[in-house]
Amino acid sequence: MTAPSSVDLAAARAPNGRPIITVKDLRKRYGSLTAVDGVSFEVAEGEVFGILGPNGAGKTTTLEMIEGMRPIDSGEATIDGVDVRANPREVKRRIGIQLQASAFFDELNLEELLHLFGRLYGREVDTAALLADVELTEKARSQVRTLSGGQKQRFSIASALVNQPRVLFLDEPTTGLDPQARRHLWALVRTLQERGHTVVLTTHYMEEAEELCDRVAIMDGGRIIALDTPQALVDQLVARGFTKARVERLANLEDVFIDLTGHDLREGE
């Protein structure tokens, strides 16, 4: 079976016609390597948008250019009406960013860190409410290094929420987490969506993309090679005559694992 040669243009548009992110022909080169090679898409307000792809596909570079964290070689990116190239600082004011490797200052506790990050946006934040949102109330006076993997990621999301961002960027939020912690984070992302945040995330887990994302873009070699709702992408594949070598079972091993070990978080709390 062959991948579709071009992305369905209609599917690349914001479904509700109200794009909060517009990306047009974004490109980035490092020497002779083309990391991002003409990426275009829109994200609708309130949508959870996933960017999938193997390592080195250009997911993180694309994300960082849109966030104003990395200079754009050519192309356009607009978030909430603000041109990223012209005004990256204004863009950062409106978005929340969870970096792939989230590190914080070791000597400060969670409360102090959130307070500090609030001040960086010129805001006084309700640290207790934020920590309650990500279920880290008891850890308010702990340092980040004492947290488990899942707790770290949740705190990282809390730190990205201090400015009540219109758009939240999550770069591989569940990589390295156990199944319980991953499901817990999915619930958090859904809650954020319900509260009206637009979420753009990257992931290696197809199950996660299917579970969370309204639409997904699949990247390879710096290009988007497919973009649609997860269901539409599956339907297109089946329509091309795809059959699975083994018939889908009613449950998979992860279902067994969760059934045996329960949904409770294992974080030594």
Binding site: E67, M69, R89, E90, K92, R93, I97, L99, A101, S102, A103, F104, F105, F117, L120, Y121, S159, A160
Partner: peptide, 17 residues
């Protein structure tokens, strides 16, 4: 250390110079 762990990059994600 801040540079290596990426804590410094986290600061760049905010609008503060």
């Amino acid at each position: 250390q801040l540079k290596r762990t990426g804590a410094l990059r986290r600061l760049f994600a905010t609008p503060t110079s």
